[in-house]
């Protein structure tokens, strides 16, 4: 991913620590929920030009299965949990202890299983951020969406794009034991939340 490095390097590094800590909490919650060894690792925190963000995040041009939250509070943002369809179907089948469904549609149980996964992940992630920056952020009810990743990301970025032509995004990846899963968690703060996060960073000597 292009790293424009408009942020001071130190600030970006501290933001990575903040995101890594939230990822750790979300990882623990995910292990409990899936009763397996699915872990989360912070992939990157970066500031990228608006015009290349969808390409840089490699969201592709095929529809993805997503669970999306708006983050409310004085300063908010959005979180997007993305899966390829195959990954999403495998996870739903695993949680529901069924075989992978061949139907092109998502039934209520499958939607519910994925939405709850997003809810658990998102809440753990947001709770950690809230604790670390001492600022209340409240996730909305999750939305189950099957759409183009770039289309959903566009709307999630609206809280940043008015003020700047670069955007800050934290991306987390998932693993099952040592195998990479085609899941990603994107954390997109608004400009206001980004400022709160930067103010809340510990000052290093």
């Amino acid at each position: 991913m292009t790293d424009v490095s408009c942020l001071e390097t130190t600030k970006l590094s501290l933001l990575r620590e903040l995101f890594a800590s939230a990822t750790h909490d979300a990882s623990a919650a995910m292990c409990c929920w899936t009763n397996s060894l699915i872990t989360l690792t912070l992939d990157e925190v970066c500031e990228v030009p608006l015009q290349s963000v969808c390409t840089d995040l490699n969201l592709g041009d095929e529809p993805l299965t997503m669970v999306v939250f708006n983050l409310d509070g004085g300063a908010g943002g959005a979180m997007i949990l993305t899966f390829t369809e195959e990954s999403a179907r495998r996870l739903a089948a695993s949680l529901l202890e069924t075989d992978v469904q061949g139907s092109p549609d998502w039934n209520e149980l499958e939607r519910s299983a994925l939405t709850e996964t997003g809810n658990i992940l998102g809440c753990a992630y947001v709770n950690a951020i809230t604790r670390l920056i001492d600022h209340q952020v409240v996730p909305s009810p999750p939305h189950f969406v099957v759409d183009f990743g770039a289309s959903v990301l566009e709307q999630a970025l609206l809280g940043q794009v008015g003020a700047t032509d670069t955007v800050l995004i934290g991306r987390t990846r998932f693993q099952h034991r040592d195998a990479e899963l085609n899941w990603w968690l994107l954390f997109i703060p608004t400009t206001a939340l980004r400022a709160v996060m930067e103010r809340g960073l510990p000052v290093t000597p």
Partner: peptide
């Protein structure tokens, strides 16, 4: 100009 996933505070932007 779609309104995606409920839209939150930006629901009218599209």
């Amino acid at each position: 100009g779609a309104c995606m996933f409920g839209g939150g505070r930006f629901m009218d932007i599209g």
